[in-house]
Structures are given as C-alpha cells and as structure tokens.
C-alpha cells in the first residue's frame, strides 16, 4: 500500500537547514498495523505527515497504492486524502465550535455523502464508541478519552483504507489510552491499515511491526507478530 524510496525531507530557515527525513525506505502492506518509535526529533512525525500527504517530501518517491503521490498539487493531495486517509492526533484536534455529532459528520460533508447516510454512520460510530449520549456536547465538555474517541470516530467515518495516528494516547491516562488502542486494534482486525507514531513501547506492541527511527533514518524494523 505504501512504498517510499529514498524519501527525504529538509526544513530550511534563513540560517539553519534541518534534515528531518534522510533517505527513508519503507514498505507497508494493506492490513498492516505499523508502529513508528524513536526519540523526540528523530523525524517520526514528519514521516507521518509526509505519508499522510499533509506535507511534501523534499526528494525521493512516495507510492500510495502504486501511484506516485509525493509531488502532487495540494488539490490532488486533498482529493486522495479525503477518500483514503483518516487522522488521529495526540491533541485530538476537534473543532471547538462544533458538537460531537458535527465533528464526526464533518469529513462526510467534504465527500458529499447524502444526509441520511451521514446520520446513520455517525450514530453507528458514536454508539459503537459509547459516546452517543454526548452527541450534542461540545469538545470542551468532554474528558480527554471521550475527545479522542470522537477523534477516532471522525477519522474512520469515511471508511479510510489507512489510518495515521500521531501519539493517539499521548494526552490520555492509561485506562483511556488502553481503550483507544483497543479500538485501533479492532479496526485493524477488520482490515484497516494503521500507521501509528508513539513513544510508548506498550502501545507500539499493539502493532504487528515496529519501525525505529533515529536522526531521520530507519534504524531497525522488528516484527512483533506475524501479519495475517
């Protein structure tokens, strides 16, 4: 599903040049759950952003489903993104002015899903995540765990092929963190590919493969469990 060849990302300011990704070659197959680990500043979030098409690589190739997408225009990237990808962030990134229901509904507004279908999907998901009773609340009125469940619901409401999660449990206590990890694992079990950046070994082991990064390069790839 994902293949990168010599992927490089360099950030430039007036005086400093920072190489965030330095010749990354990875290969992720459909249905995998891959965790990316490494110390702060090793480039794991940059990798996630490039693979999530919200950032462009400086050089190298990025093939998504066999198609080169690393250097597409913003318009085309946006199109690929909204039909194929779902995002979960450490800081949840819910829109404060929208209710739980409206936040989850949002991606479907951009993919033009009919209203009755939207209602059905949002309710199913909220039900499944056990936050239906909070549907008319605003994000500030929810606990961190609840907010992250809403964020996950939003990420999967368009049935994406790939979910990109950036430290999804980083702002949660262990109980809530566990719950989110279980949801991700269940999603993976139903065939969704997951790429997750994390600091936590415990969380990383929910995946079937761990990629370790240092200074913008992949240093090791451990198979945790065989991908079925």
């Amino acid at each position: 599903m994902i293949k990168t060849v010599n992927l490089t990302k360099v950030y430039r300011t007036d005086e400093v040049e920072t190489t965030a990704l330095n010749g990354v070659n990875i290969d992720i197959k459909e249905g995998e759950f891959v965790s990316v680990m490494g110390p702060s500043g090793c480039g794991k979030s940059t990798l996630l952003n490039v693979l999530g098409m919200i950032d462009n690589p400086t050089s190298g190739e990025y093939l998504f489903n066999g198609e080169e997408v690393g250097h597409l225009s913003e318009r085309k990237r946006s199109n690929v993104r909204k039909h194929n990808l779902g995002f979960v962030f450490q800081s949840f990134n819910l829109i404060d002015e929208l209710t739980v229901y409206e936040n989850v509904e949002l991606p479907m507004l951009y993919t033009k899903v009919p209203s009755s279908e939207r209602k059905k999907r949002v309710e199913e998901l909220l039900e499944g995540m056990n936050i239906m009773h909070r549907r008319n609340h605003f994000p500030q009125q929810l606990s961190g765990g609840q907010q992250q469940r809403v964020a996950v619901a939003r990420a999967i409401v368009n049935k994406p092929k790939l979910i990109l999660a950036d430290e999804p449990t980083g702002n949660l206590d262990s109980a809530n963190g566990d719950e989110v990890m279980k949801i991700l694992a269940d999603l993976n079990a139903t065939g969704t590919t997951i790429l997750m950046v994390t600091h936590s070994q415990y969380c990383a082991e929910f995946g079937n493969r761990i990629i370790r990064m240092l200074d913008g390069q992949v240093v090791t790839e451990n198979v945790v469990k065989q991908y079925m």
């Binding site: 919200i54 946006s78 909204k82 995002f87 990134n93 829109i95 002015e97 949002l106 951009y110 993919t111």
Partner: peptide, 16 residues
C-alpha cells in the same frame, strides 16, 4: 487556524 487545519486535513479545499 486549528479549524482550518482540521478542515483541510479531512478534505476541505481552499475555495470551500
């Protein structure tokens, strides 16, 4: 900004 970011990530275009 955050709202703009999220909307763009989930597929909003500039014109929208």
């Amino acid at each position: 900004a955050k709202e703009v970011g999220i909307r763009k990530v989930v597929g909003a275009r500039k014109q929208g």
